[in-house]
Amino acid sequence: MDVIIRTVSKAIFPFILLLGVFIIFHGHLTPGGSFPGAAITISGIALIIISYSLKKAERIINEENAHKIEAIVALILALIVIYEPVFRNYIKYGTRLFELWSAQQILFLNLLGGAMAATALLLIIFLMVKE
């Protein structure tokens, strides 16, 4: 691609990642949650795939690691949501308000759901480009 597109996409890529991770982490305070946060971080990686090649994006996240992360996070999420009365004493912590480390189990579940959605979208884009 062109020189201008490559330079600008390399310069703006960490800020897009920072915005996406911010929206995932503060899902219980600001509007957002896991799904828009995951979509924004994957848009940042898709920008690198478009302007450079697929091999340069494979240096950031490998495809085999993405498969393993997706399987493990899916198992943990299913176990926690289905067997909730067992984990009730270990996950629900503290009763402060309007802080980052609060809102009993929503912070934890937002991280898990965001990781799951991000790896699924990443695998879809990798497989569509790789043909």
Partner: peptide, 21 residues
């Protein structure tokens, strides 16, 4: 605002990319 953020980032950004490919 939640649904506006989700719709803008998913349907106007990622779906268009997959359709173009």
């Amino acid at each position: 605002p939640d649904i506006a953020m989700t719709e803008a980032s998913v349907n106007a950004c990622l779906t268009t990319l997959i359709y173009v490919i």
